Amino acid sequence: MQMDLSPANGDDVRQIRIALDGGTKCRWRLSGIRVGIQLARTSALAKGKDITPANYVFDFDDEGYSNAFGKGKPTPVSGNLFFKTEFFPMEYVYRSISEIDLDLFAGDEKFNKWNRYYKVTNSRVIKIEPILYLNKVVRLQTLGSSPGKVFATYPDGSSENISGRVPDYDKLLRMKR
Rank of each mutant, 00 (worst) to 15 (best):
S159W: 01
F88S: 00
Y94I: 01
Y94M: 07
L45P: 06
V166M: 12
V150K: 05
S98M: 04
P147W: 01
K127G: 10
G164H: 07
K119Y: 13
I37F: 09
F82H: 15
D170P: 11
F151R: 05
D59H: 08
P76V: 03
S145R: 15
R17P: 02
E86P: 03
D168W: 01
S159A: 08
L173H: 04
K119G: 06
M90Q: 13
M1Y: 15
I97E: 13
R177E: 15
R139F: 07
S98G: 07
P147A: 02
V13D: 01
T42E: 07
D50K: 12
F58H: 06
I131V: 14
G72M: 04
S43D: 14
N115S: 14
E109K: 09
A44T: 14
V77S: 04
P74M: 05
V137C: 02
E99C: 07
K84M: 11
S6N: 05
G48P: 03
G32L: 04
V150A: 09
P7D: 03
I18N: 05
D168P: 09
A152T: 02
S145P: 12
A54K: 02
E86V: 12
R116K: 15
N161F: 12
E99N: 09
P74R: 05
D61Y: 00
D50G: 15
Q141Y: 03
K176T: 02
R124H: 07
K84D: 13
V93H: 15
G70Y: 10
K71D: 06
D21I: 10
F151H: 04
V125N: 13
C26E: 14
K127A: 13
N122G: 09
S159H: 02
G72L: 03
G107E: 02
V166C: 09
L45H: 01
T52L: 01
W114L: 12
D156N: 11
L143W: 14
S163W: 11
V125S: 13
N80G: 09
D101E: 15
L39K: 05
K136A: 13
K113M: 10
F111L: 11
A40W: 09
Y117W: 00
A19G: 11
N122D: 10
T121A: 11
G157T: 05
N122M: 07
L132A: 04
R34K: 04
S43H: 03
L104R: 00
R116I: 00
K136L: 03
Y117S: 05
R34V: 15
